[in-house]
Simulated scan of single mutants.
Amino acid sequence: MRVLTFTALYPNKVNPLQGIFIHQRVKHLARRPGNFLEVIAPVPYFPSWLPIRRWQQFSQIPREEVIDGMRIHHPRYPFLPEISMPAHGMLMYLASLPIAQRLHREKRFDCVDAHFVYPDGFAAVRLGRKLHLPVVVSARGTDINLYRSFRLIRPMLRWTLMHAAGVIAVSADLKTKMIALGIPETKIQVISNGVDTERFQLLDAKSARKQLELPEEDAIAVSVGYLIESKGHHLLIAAIAKLKERLPQVRLYVIGEGVYRAELDALVREKQLQDRVFLLGNRPNQELGLWFSAADVSCLLSSREGWPNVISEALACGTPVLATRVGGIPEIITTPEFGMLVERNVQSIAAGLEQALTKPWNRVEIARHSQSRSWNAVAAEVEDYLKSKV
């Protein structure tokens, strides 16, 4: 099967961590016998001479690159932050059409595999109509959880989902929300994300702490995710402050970067937690397994989620998880033996964190269960679904 993957949410030379879960699914699908995949990952056009650091990075992304044997094309589309969002889908489509037509003439694809319903999926469905190819769109989380509340975007979400040949939801929760948009239940297939079982596996906690130069005896919590309000890092920091008398040895390591960094730094200083809370910025994906293994608990206090990979990855390392009861999270933490679900407020988080840090956990069993959902297994399900739409 010859598949054209289309999504802007894909790793690149400048941001190798972006959309790594999509790359994992694409890469493993490409490795299955008889398959060939190529990727179009459009990026915003931004003049290299404009001195705006946040956006200037887009000019550094090559027009074409190869990652893990996957060839990725990066056409440029016009982009005005927070202004042109209703036009992003059409702009992506127009910018990507020439390269899509050329690749289809050369490769003769069987279908288009698109990720993120809007604007990516919208553009992909239009490409499919132009190229006479069926398009399967994968809903990821924010595209449905947040964008369906945007008055101008909601109709384009519905148009995309209704005109796609098929829809993949990474969680049953997302499927339910798409049905509420008027999408037929029979059109939506739930295929959850997998986990890299080579990168995320049970390791000796003492050895992991030694490699990371962390104290052996302290209780350690980690929180991995973008530094944005919806990830709830501020609530976790406040919970650490609430527990500092009862759990004087607890340390929190926050891994990630984002626009909320200054606010979190200020909160750490305000709560006088400089010796307990550490904002580490981005860390290489291959290093995350060590952090999960070194931790007593991994935390994710989001207000919305699709299928958060950091939970699956922590569990695959045998690390219990403290998380909010939102999105697909209850579909991952299906038993109290894997972690704890809390309400999204400081009191509930603090109580849950204290219990998680004092409860005995069977890390071997946690890892064994979570390792069963490999990316190979996911790729096989995706392959079967794509074939059913060709």
Rank of each mutant, 00 (worst) to 15 (best):
L386V: 01
V224H: 05
V326G: 01
F109R: 04
V321N: 04
V136L: 14
P11Y: 09
E257R: 12
H73N: 01
D384H: 12
I61A: 09
R108D: 06
A377D: 08
D143Q: 00
R373D: 07
K210S: 14
H369W: 13
I329K: 02
S223T: 00
L264G: 07
A356V: 12
G232V: 02
P16E: 09
L37V: 14
R148N: 03
Q347L: 15
S207H: 09
A323P: 03
G327C: 07
I22V: 15
R269F: 10
L127W: 05
Q371M: 14
Y45A: 14
L235F: 07
A169L: 04
E270S: 11
I183K: 03
L91G: 04
E198A: 09
S96M: 01
R54I: 15
L146W: 05
E65S: 11
A316H: 04
R25V: 04
G258N: 10
A164N: 04
A266Q: 11
D120K: 02
E270P: 00
N345W: 08
I144D: 02
R158H: 06
P11D: 12
G258R: 10
Q60V: 06
K177M: 15
L9V: 12
S370G: 07
I366P: 03
Y10D: 05
V224C: 09
P86R: 00
